[in-house]
């Protein structure tokens, strides 16, 4: 699953297929030059469709309110200004929202990664009574739409006095079945039974095996799951929307939502807010993109 590195020459017929290397399996294209040009043109056009809205938003966030909708839009704001950012940060509890979002997402991520790795390990490396049933119960929770638990979970959480964001934004979401599935797939594929046996012979406890032998080998899927969970938690909207009513305890998405719904549609505050809100997710993604993209695809392909 390594990033695709093109092999120089096509395999000649008669040559033994280079065994497991899943590196270069692409269909052979008949080398039409126009076809290739068309391909690059299409992909580049598509790239622009993906990038344009983001560039427009970033550039707009540095423009005075009156210039945001200028046409044709200037890529480089002139005059550029930090006024919007200053207004946002001084007039709104933006850093509060930011802190709540980031900290709850980090906590949820740390716990989820641990819970999923542990359960994934059990499903991958042990035989036990009821395993099939338990696995399919776990897996089927992937197809439960959130809308069905939205109302009753809200009622239960509020009635039991747990509607505090530090509990309610974290604890119900730290055991994603998708993460267990991903871990289980990876452990089956890449952790040989022998090293577990060796650790057992050395007298390690079962949890010791997980903690000291298995976990250190799980770097790639842990990275993937961590990014995935962080994004889920940081970007979640509906649950915080029903749960949190105190503006000081808003998460970033909620904060941006009220700014945007405000009377004068304060897009000069909303754009810098959107840009700042995206910084952590884009950063996390760019840093761990390799793990995430490969972790996601590995689970699905071998699944």
């Amino acid at each position: 699953m390594s990033a695709a590195t093109p092999t120089p020459a096509a395999a000649r017929p008669g040559e033994a297929p280079r065994t497991p290397a899943p590196v270069e399996n692409r269909p052979r294209r008949r080398g039409s030059r126009t076809g290739r040009v068309a391909l690059y043109v299409t992909l580049t056009a598509l790239l622009l469709v993906f990038v344009a809205p983001m560039v427009w938003a970033v550039s707009g966030s540095f423009k005075p309110r009156g210039d945001i909708f200028e046409y044709p839009p200037n890529l480089i704001p002139s005059p550029g200004t930090f006024e919007n950012f200053r207004n946002l940060l001084s007039g709104q509890p933006f850093w509060n929202w930011f802190a709540i979002s980031v900290v709850t997402a980090l906590l949820a991520t740390a716990i989820a990664v641990f819970v999923c790795a542990l359960a994934g390990f059990a499903f991958a490396k042990y035989r036990f009574a009821g395993k099939r049933l338990l696995f399919s119960v776990m897996f089927s929770s992937l197809s439960v739409p959130f809308a069905v638990i939205l109302v009753p979970l809200f009622v239960l959480i509020v009635k039991s006095g747990l509607s505090n964001p530090w509990f309610a934004l974290i604890v119900p979401w730290v055991a994603p079945a998708f993460g267990i599935f991903m871990m289980q797939q990876y452990i089956i594929q890449s952790i040989p039974d022998e090293i577990l046996e060796a650790a057992r012979i050395d007298g390690a406890s079962e949890f010791g095996i997980f903690w000291r032998v298995v976990l250190p080998l799980l770097r790639p899927p842990l990275g993937a799951l961590a990014v995935w969970q962080f994004l889920q938690s940081y970007n979640s909207f509906l649950w915080p929307l029903v749960l949190i009513s105190d503006t000081d305890r808003y998460t970033i998405p909620l904060g941006l939502n009220i700014l945007f719904k405000a009377e004068n549609r304060s897009f000069d505050l909303v754009l810098p807010g959107a840009v700042l809100a995206s910084v952590p997710t884009i950063l996390v993604f760019l840093l761990l993109r390799k793990q995430l993209l490969e972790g996601l695809s590995a689970g699905a392909v071998k699944g």
């Binding site: 809205p53 983001m54 427009w56 938003a57 940081y234 970007n235 909207f237 970033i252 998405p253 941006l256 939502n257 945007f260 897009f267 909303v270 754009l271 959107a274 809100a277 995206s278 997710t281 884009i282």
Partner: peptide, 9 residues
Amino acid sequence: LSPIVIALV
């Protein structure tokens, strides 16, 4: 990106 970011842009 957050759905809210996408939505408002």
